[in-house]
Amino acid sequence: MEIVESTNVYAYKLITKKDYFAPGHRACQGCAEALAVRLVAKALGRNVIVASATGCMEIISSPMPFTSWRVPWIHVAFENAAAVASGAEAGMKVLMRKGRVPKRKITFLAMAGDGGTSDIGVQALSGALERGHDFIYICYDNEAYMNTGIQRSSSTPYGASTTTSPAGKVIPGQITWKKNMPEIAVAHNIPYVATACPSYPIDLVEKVNKAARVKGPAYIHILSVCPTGWRLAPELSIRAGRLAVETGVFPLYEVEYGRYRFTEEYLKIQGRFRHLSEEMIDTIQKRVVEEYEKLEKKIKMTEGD
């Protein structure tokens, strides 16, 4: 998968210099989840209300009397970010309808980690997606309960050693496969689902912007490398995310109204492709998928050589 970033390094300068997620937060050194939050906050700007689940990002950003949030932010509990965002969205909608708050576009963002999303928060999330609230849900997936000390979640990949799936003498770490949370979101027939990774900041920002434009629920699953939990040198966390994407372990894709596509930003950013019609983009997309599948087959055929 070719990603936009490699085509033009100067594109980073296009992203706003404003940070709505302030420095001085207590995330570990090299935390790519904090980076993902920073990029999401940049993408959404000031007209947002954030409902956060309990977890690393909540702990590191709000130790009283300090806050890293320059936008309105609420944390209630672990499993209910989607429900709190539902309430904020519904409440604001009715207040604007009744003329008690001036009408304007406000984006509602619910955010949680992989535990708060695919385990304990999956019910509240499913309810909010099904009810069709106009909000974005972002799962920052660092593939375990990092805040409580690297315990396995249903999002921990097969084989990974965690503190509750240790690489033992009999059982070699996590023995289950990573739950496919984006697919679960897709099954709710919502307008927009995407995967992203802060190793690809422009792609991530674009997807968050697209999610904000969508009317109705949008779900973005962001692979967020955790150097502490992944037993990785902190300077390697961006590289690790890139490798996850490049090797196909964590493919970047979008699902718009049930239609799957690899990230089209590659085409969009280049003037030479700007003229393409939807049909032509689809043709290219189809070909990319075919070629990718062929490549996968070849990899399989030559396995063990």
Binding site: I74, A83, V84, S86, G87, G91, M92, A124
Partner: peptide, 12 residues
């Protein structure tokens, strides 16, 4: 109760 919390927090 979570929805009620969110709604109340925006002033509803």
């Amino acid at each position: 109760m979570s929805v009620s919390a969110g709604a109340s927090a925006v002033g509803a």
